[in-house]
Amino acid sequence: MILPKLDYKKAKSLEEAIEYFEKSNGEAAYFAGGTDLIPRIKLRLRTPSLVIDLKGIEEMVGIKKTDEMYVIGANTTIFELKNSEIIRENLPTLYEACAQTSCEVLQMRGTIGGNILQDTRCLFYNKSLTWRRAKGFCYKMGGNVCHATGGKNVCYANYSSDLATALLSLGSKLVIVGKDGQRKCDFEEILTGKPEKPFNLRQGEIVKEIIIPGGKRQGAFEKIRIRGSIDYPLINGAFTMDSKGGKLVVGAIGSKPCVYSVETIEEERVKILSETVFNDLKPVNNTVVSPVYRKKMGKVIAIKLIEKTKKGA
């Protein structure tokens, strides 16, 4: 499968990357591991005229731990994270999410930044141009219909990042760099909830690093998929708990994971919470299993995560 015409530039610094972007008239795409981007370009889901390789930017790689926080460079690979003592010892939620992402060879290529900025997915969308043209372009493609539901001007594509679900439960923040400088925001803030355009980033901005509040954090991660490897989640969930309480996140259904603050983990409260999760999830028929099933799994995952965390603690 051949790529359409595009140019390639490797940036040595954030400044250089942003400069390349600025010169591209907004037609460039940042390129880290490429495990999400390259297939999309091959399928003509994205048609950048230039890809800007960020892998040469050294300040974007590495895992740092202080008492207050963990700082993870956006170019750190999922495999590096999985094999990091720091992550495994202190952030089991993130560790598990890494271990369950795709397969090892792709974990070695895929980066944390790329993973959380992966575009949303849909069984009707992630197809070749020929397939989509034959079917008719959907809303996310610039048409007006959603093939999965038959609805007009709506999109239900799923944000399928496993790492994102874990990072949201850990209360992560992002450091974002753009032409006007650096800003820091809650990860949750950049999620628009719009599957057709899932991220609230300004043109040309780069996620430089991910910041996770410090300390040893109890938690767990769950993912439902058909195969044991090379599979995106049909639904995923993460729970992280510390002295101040816990945060439950259920993701991979729709474009924005559901985030819940959990004050107590008494059985009765957990049951109520799991019902809330069930009611909040609005899956549609756009994966290989039924939407009803995915909705039910929200409840199952919620209970399982909290139980697992209790046991671990």
């Binding site: 397969c103 069984l123 009707f124 992630n126 197809k127 397939w131 058909i226 195969r227 044991g228 490897s229 090379i230 599979d231 995106y232 290989v288």
Partner: peptide, 14 residues
């Protein structure tokens, strides 16, 4: 809907 090796599930070693 699944004319690929991602959504068509050939089992893996796992």
């Amino acid at each position: 809907m699944n004319p690929d090796l991602l959504e068509y599930k050939i089992p893996t070693a796992k």
